[in-house]
């Protein structure tokens, strides 16, 4: 489902050239989950961005759901992202001018899911993440845990085949973090989507069956 082959990613900064990713290769089976573990600055977010098409590697290939995503045109990449990928950002990144319901509807609107189907799906997701009464709330009215749950609901609203989550529990306390992770794993298992989660949270890393440890942009260990 996801096949990453020999990708390099380099940034130019005040410190000169920095290699964020060096010769990374791995694959993730359809419907399974992979944890990208590592310290801050190890390249987890950059790798996730390369998989999701948010970043283009200097070298190497990323094949997601049969598409070589970095060979796609801008429009084709957008089409691929909106249909196939769901993204959970570290700090939720809800659209500030849309309420909870509209945020969840956004990817469905992009995919032209309309009417009762869309409303039904929103209600279903709000129930699933425990925010049934919060549809009209604006993002600034939500706690960090609620924000992440809405972000997760938004990421899976259009039933993507790939879910990418970047430090989803970073801003949460352990209880909220555990709840969110359990929710993420159970819902993505139900929907059969492939999930890649970048984290340095030991509570997530330990129980996960498939793990990739990154250090200084390279794979240190793979389980």
């Amino acid at each position: 489902m996801i096949q990453v082959s020999g990708i390099f990613k380099m940034f130019r900064s005040g410190r000169g050239k920095v290699f964020a990713l060096k010769e990374i290769s791995f694959s993730v089976e359809k419907g399974s989950s992979l944890i990208l573990a590592g310290k801050s600055g190890s390249g987890k977010t950059t790798l996730l961005n390369c998989i999701g098409g948010l970043e283009k590697p200097e070298k190497g290939n990323v094949i997601c759901a049969g598409e070589q995503i970095h060979s796609l045109s801008g429009k084709a990449l957008s089409r691929f992202q909106r249909r196939r990928i769901g993204f959970v950002f570290q700090s939720g990144n809800l659209l500030s001018y849309l309420n909870v319901m509209e945020n969840i509807e956004f990817p469905m609107a992009l995919n032209e899911i309309k009417g009762k189907r869309r409303h039904g799906r929103v209600s279903e997701l709000l129930d699933a993440v425990g925010l049934a009464g919060a549809g009209s709330a604006m993002p600034f009215e939500l706690s960090a845990g609620e924000t992440q749950r809405v972000a997760f609901a938004r990421a899976i609203a259009h039933s993507p085949s790939i879910l990418l989550a970047d430090e989803p529990t970073a801003n949460l306390d352990s209880e909220n973090g555990r709840q969110l992770i359990n929710l993420m794993f159970s819902l993505s298992r139900e929907s059969g989507c492939t999930m890649v989660v970048a984290t340095h949270d030991a509570e997530i890393i330990h129980p996960a069956p498939h793990k990739l440890f990154l250090k200084d942009g390279q794979i240190e260990d793979a389980i």
Partner: peptide, 18 residues
């Protein structure tokens, strides 16, 4: 001031010209 939101939308599949 809201540029980040355009980044979020791009990540979700809004095309550049959109």
């Amino acid at each position: 001031k809201n540029m980040r939101e355009h980044g979020i939308m791009k990540a979700m599949g809004i095309a550049p010209y959109e």
